[in-house]
Structure formats: C-alpha cells, structure tokens
Design a protein around this nucleic acid. Sequence first.
DNA 1: TCTTGACCTGAAGTCAGGTTTAGGTTATAC
DNA 2: GTATAACCTAAACCTGACTTCAGGTCAAGA
Lengths: 146, 146
Amino acid sequence: MYTIGQVSEMFNIPVSTLRYYDKEGLFPGLERSSGIRRFSEKEIEALRIIECLKKTGMEIKDIKQFMEWCAEGSSTYTVRRDFFLRRKKIVEEEIRKMSRVLDMIDFKCWYYEQAIKDGNEDRLNQMIPDNLPDEIKDVYDRAHED
Amino acid sequence: MYTIGQVSEMFNIPVSTLRYYDKEGLFPGLERSSGIRRFSEKEIEALRIIECLKKTGMEIKDIKQFMEWCAEGSSTYTVRRDFFLRRKKIVEEEIRKMSRVLDMIDFKCWYYEQAIKDGNEDRLNQMIPDNLPDEIKDVYDRAHED
DNA sequence: TCTTGACCTGAAGTCAGGTTTAGGTTATAC
DNA sequence: GTATAACCTAAACCTGACTTCAGGTCAAGA
C-alpha cells in the first residue's frame, strides 16, 4: 500500500494530477483510511495502463470507461480485449503516419543541405517534383503520397 | 491563387482554422486583394509543412518561428536544416515509444484472450511476470522495459 | 502539547488550439 | 440592381487536461 506522495514519486506524476485522475474516476475501487487515499498494486497497474493509453492519445473519459470494465470483473473480458484490439489498429496507423512524417523531414533535411551548398533554392525548385536524384526520390515520393 | 474557401476544401481544414493560423502568424507573406486573402503556392507548401509538423506534436508558436525563418530567405538555411534535424530525432524517439506501447497493447490482447479461455485471471496472475510462455515473453519484456 | 509536513476538498485559474457569434463588406449570378 | 454566397474582424466561448489556491484535517516527532 502506498500514499499518494509515494505514487507521485514512483511515476514522476504530480500529486495534483493523481488526485485529478481519481476525481475523473480512473481508480474506481481506490481505498481510503480516514480520508487518505491508499494505493494498492491494482492502482499501480492501472496507472501503468493509464500512462500507456495516454501515449496513444486516448482521452481520460475513454480510459475511465476501460477502468470501469476492469472493476466489473470477468463479464467484460471480451469487451476489454476488443478495446485493446481497436487501440492496436489506431497505434499501428499512428506509427505508419509517423513514418511518412519522417520521410517528409528527411526530405527537408536533404533539401536544406542542398540549399546550403548552392546558396539558393533555384536549382532545387527546378528539380521538384520530377527531376529529383535517385538518392532522395523514394523518400520524396513516400513523403508526398496521399 | 486560391481563396480561403478553396484552400479549406483542398486540405479539409475549416475556414476558421485557416484564419486562426493566419492570425497566429503562420503565413508571414500572405497577400490580400481588397481585404480578401489570396493563397499562393507558397502558402500551400507552408500548409503541407504545418500539417506535417502538427503531426509531430509541434506547437503553433514553434511552427511560426520556422515560417519566419522561411520568410527571411537564404540566410536561415542552416537554421532551418538544424530545425528539421532536431525534429527528426524527436519523431524517431516517438516512433520507438509507440512501438513499446504497441508491445504493451499486444500483451494486453493476449492477456484477455487467455482470460476469456480460462474464465478468470487466476492462472495469468500466477504466470506474471516470471512464468510467461515463450510466445509472449519477449513482448511482455519489451513492453515493461523502462 | 505543539509544530510541521503530508494529506484532504472545492472552486477557480491556465493554456493550447481551436470554434462560434455578431456585425459588417465584397463578389458573383440572375 | 439586387439577392445571396463567400469573404472579413474582434471578441467571446469551448474543451481537455491539468494546476493553483484557500482553507482545513491528520499523524509523527521533539
């Protein structure tokens, strides 16, 4: 059992944020002794999941929904699995999107490298988009496919 | 040359958002004729970069900084290259982080698949973290490395 | 016992990134 | 030439995710 201050240190999350999460219903079964929150392993695991889901851009109210399903017990196993399957697709798509963003950034790095060499963008602007050298053409194409 | 409405359709961005971007200084040299905004190829390319940088989580005010460098001309080529090199590192880190999140999600999918089969989490809780089967152990380890 | 630090609450404040509203101007089609 | 659709501004409003504040309680050590 941990106090809010200990959990705050463990996860490097402000105490105010933990209280906010509690207020928003992210710890459905959180115990208290004479008013003071007592975090068990259950809440620690919940917090790991919260951190994970927040990284995927999920909103607090949707994380709350998941925590409520956890509190409901074994009747929600399939709902919870489907929840993660949906999230999986979203994160996979996010990674694909980021890879394309990375191609765009790589292209821009190359672009400014050339501009530095040339002292201007004239030659570059004549190359784009059809006369790019092989070394960068693939990156450009991936970055600009919609 | 395009009107704000045409650009809105091209990019599927509300007109109000384009005006907001303009107010925040994201189109430094944007022309007007009798008060009406005239978007040129320059602003279209700017908007492509804005969309890209927004996907990396960059704030409007930092995107504005970049656009100002663009408006300054050839003296800022190296600054702009370095800007993209920094962003590249951040996005690469983001992708690595997302891959670990994906491992966590894969683990959770497996976990609930087992729980559905078993009808409870008892067997699972005895397995975690040291007696996991090989098929999932790697995923678990990657998901939990800090 | 008293003080000090960690805890508690509800309400207000903050910040980013827009969106909505109200009131007005301009361009285009009939 | 007049309707109406698309444009304009400033300012207020909204949402999510916190943070800060004011005022109060609780537990442990000197």
